[in-house]
């Protein structure tokens, strides 16, 4: 039964994300899309992949990949996000 409810929730979220993208909300379109995607991923992970009742070790393993991806994005963004405002000296001279 919980599988079916999960599936139903996923379908509702899918409809929601598709519908929301036809409403102009600026940056919040992306926020909504990604937020709903995260919710869907969480549903799949918790119920279909049984992370809900899993041991701490498995939960850590599941989060590690995402955490490391966040490191890649976050630290790269110290460069990509700030290059216009704090350029390297070689670019600042130009």
């Amino acid at each position: 039964m919980s599988y079916f409810l999960t599936w139903l929730a996923l379908m509702v979220l899918l409809a929601l994300t598709t519908a929301s993208s036809y409403i102009p909300m600026g940056i919040f379109n992306t926020v909504a899309n990604m937020g709903i995607s995260c919710a869907k991923a969480l549903l799949i992970a918790l119920f279909f992949m049984h992370l809900r009742g899993a041991s701490a070790l498995l939960r850590i393993a599941a989060v590690t990949g995402l955490l490391w991806l966040a490191l890649l994005f976050g630290l790269s963004w110290t460069d990509l996000g700030t290059r216009p405002s704090a350029p390297a000296p070689i670019d600042a001279r130009r």
């Binding site: 994300t17 598709t18 993208s21 036809y22 409403i23 102009p24 379109n29 899309n33 990604m34 709903i36 995607s37 869907k40 991923a41 799949i44 992970a45 279909f48 992949m49």
Partner: peptide, 23 residues
């Protein structure tokens, strides 16, 4: 687990590629 993982990847790919500024 592998199958659900593929599913999760797609859950992110879908809005990334299909749903940009649809309005």
């Amino acid at each position: 687990l592998y199958w659900h993982f593929i599913d999760i990847v797609w859950v992110f790919l879908y809005p990334m590629f299909y749903l940009l500024e649809r309005y």
